[in-house]
């Protein structure tokens, strides 16, 4: 009698167990399904998710600001290196290459050192970036004078005797520099011609001016 009821009951219990666990799993999956959640839970979920989204958007903003700050740094350093370049140009620390004009004063005239300094100042005023006289860089503290050596009179630039022909190289906008010197009523027309100095001005595609010594 005992054996007879145990076996069928065990079988049914196994069936019941399978059904139960299957149903439990299905129910768990259902509980995880969004459409089965109740509205208040969904509201909380939406609230949490939108808060998270907001904080993430804020983070994006912060990161973008940081990126911008970094690019500002790059801008700043570019600005600084441009400044350094500019001051190097003024101080004549580096050789300069570019278009410009060449002013040549031949020996058949008698320029004074005033003429040289006027010409150089005129070129600075016309926006010359770098000027050299006989391949010697003119800087902010250049000076012009003249000296007599062995019965000969020489113009002097930074204690260096200038031999003829005196060649003034200036780098900048060639046309502007040219016009600044040669325009009617300009320096060549009114000042240099008094002493019979008639320099030739040639626009150059590519000039190289050495660094100051």
């Amino acid at each position: 009698m005992k054996k007879t009821w145990q076996i069928p009951l065990t079988i049914t219990f196994i069936l019941l167990g399978i059904l139960l666990s299957t149903q439990l799993q299905t129910q768990n999956r259902l509980a995880a399904d969004l459409s089965q959640q109740n509205i208040s839970d969904l509201t909380i979920m939406v609230k949490n998710l939108s808060e998270k989204r907001q904080s993430l958007a804020q983070e994006i903003d912060e990161l973008e600001t940081a990126i911008n700050a970094h690019s500002d740094d790059a801008e700043l350093s570019a600005q600084l290196s441009a400044d350094i370049e500019k001051y190097n140009l003024v101080l004549g620390k580096t050789a300069v290459q570019g278009p410009g004009i060449t002013v040549t004063i031949t020996k058949d005239s008698w320029p004074t050192f005033f003429d040289l300094s006027r010409t150089v100042n005129e070129l600075w005023a016309a926006g010359a970036e770098a000027i050299a006289i006989n391949n010697q860089r003119v800087t902010f503290d250049s000076n012009f004078s003249y000296a007599e050596v062995a019965q000969g009179q020489y113009l002097v630039h930074n204690k260096q005797l200038l031999k003829y022909p005196i060649v003034i190289d200036a780098i900048g906008n060639a046309a502007t520099l040219d016009t600044a010197l040669t325009m009617p009523g300009g320096i060549i027309d009114t000042q240099l011609s008094i002493m019979g100095v008639a320099p030739t001005v040639v626009q150059m595609e590519n000039l190289i001016i050495p660094a100051a010594e």
Binding site: G17, S21, R29
Partner: peptide, 23 residues
Amino acid sequence: IVPLLGLAAGILLGSILSFQVPV
């Protein structure tokens, strides 16, 4: 004991097989 073991075995079997019943 035997039927209860059967129940446990059934639950275990069901969780091992894990039938994917459509929702």
